Amino acid sequence: MTDARIERLITVGNVGAGSPGFPPEGLTLDNNVWLVGNDDQVIVVDAGHDAAAIEKAVAEREVLGILLTHGHEDHINAARTAAAALDTHIYLHPADLFLWELTHGDAMPDFELADRAVFGVAGTEVVTLHTPGHTPGSVCFALPGLGTVLTGDTLFQGGPGATRWDYSSFPDILSSIDGQLFTLPESTRVLPGHGDETSIAREFPEMEAWRSRGW
């Protein structure tokens, strides 16, 4: 029996200032940071914008790791500061190291994520699912004991994440959603990297509509 729970922290920050494809002043984004655990220990999923807010949300709990869904700036820009403050390690899929380096230079994450890697926290499992498409190293984290999947920017309420970059792939993200996420029970809650939750049952019937619209 687990007493694990999922907590949502919304952080806000500005990204992309001065970068190609962004307004000169950058974009202000709200990000979901997910905490999985109980009163004693926790895993942090994504670390965007505000390390102090993440540290406050964790409080006195032991942090077993910071798991990153992908390498985009808004999901990782507070990771190093938060990891140092919380005395923990950072995990990222190696296919997104080129994006990590744009934000953090040559200060590498501590460990690599791999498909089906399993983490344990508060008596429940966190299962890594490699879901390329939004980025080559995008992953989701399935929590079968909690009937939930944390999808980063792979799947949102209303469809897949953006694939407008030259390293992204719309066919790949559809394949990832179909092969990794839509094999989960229909009752599974979907908690994305931005915005509100949805479910596998709600999104599953829309696959052909997404395929037809092409985004």
Rank of each mutant, 00 (worst) to 15 (best):
V45L: 09
A53P: 00
W34Q: 05
R8P: 00
D3W: 09
N31I: 01
A57H: 07
Q41I: 09
A51M: 10
L29H: 02
P23I: 12
L64H: 10
T2C: 07
W34D: 00
L29T: 05
A52L: 15
L29S: 09
G48A: 06
Q41T: 11
V44Q: 12
V15Y: 08
V45A: 06
V42P: 10
G13I: 00
I54N: 01
E60P: 06
D3H: 14
E7D: 05
V42S: 08
P24A: 13
K56F: 08
T28I: 10
E25I: 13
I66K: 05
K56E: 15
V58L: 05
V12A: 02
L27T: 14
N14L: 06
L29N: 04
T2G: 05
P20W: 13
L29E: 02
V33I: 14
G26K: 06
G65A: 14
V63T: 15
N31D: 02
P23E: 11
P23Y: 11
A17P: 08
V58N: 06
V45W: 06
P24N: 11
W34N: 00
V58Y: 06
I6S: 07
I6H: 02
A17N: 05
G13H: 01
T2I: 07
I43A: 11
P20N: 12
N14S: 13
K56A: 15
K56S: 12
D46Q: 12
V36H: 06
G18I: 11
D3P: 08
E7F: 06
G48L: 04
I66Q: 05
H49F: 09
V36M: 10
H49Y: 03
A52K: 14
S19G: 09
E55W: 15
L9F: 01
I6F: 04
V33C: 07
N31H: 04
L29R: 08
N32V: 03
L29D: 04
L27A: 13
V42D: 12
G13F: 01
T2W: 06
D40S: 11
E55Y: 13
G37V: 02
G18C: 04
G65C: 11
N32F: 00
A51H: 13
H49T: 03
E7P: 03
D3Y: 12
N14Y: 03
D46C: 10
F22E: 03
A47S: 10
E62P: 13
T2Y: 05
I66H: 02
T28N: 03
E62L: 14
V58M: 01
D39C: 04
G48M: 00
A59S: 08
L35P: 10
Q41W: 04
N31L: 04
N14G: 01
L27G: 07
V12Y: 00
E62W: 13
R61P: 03
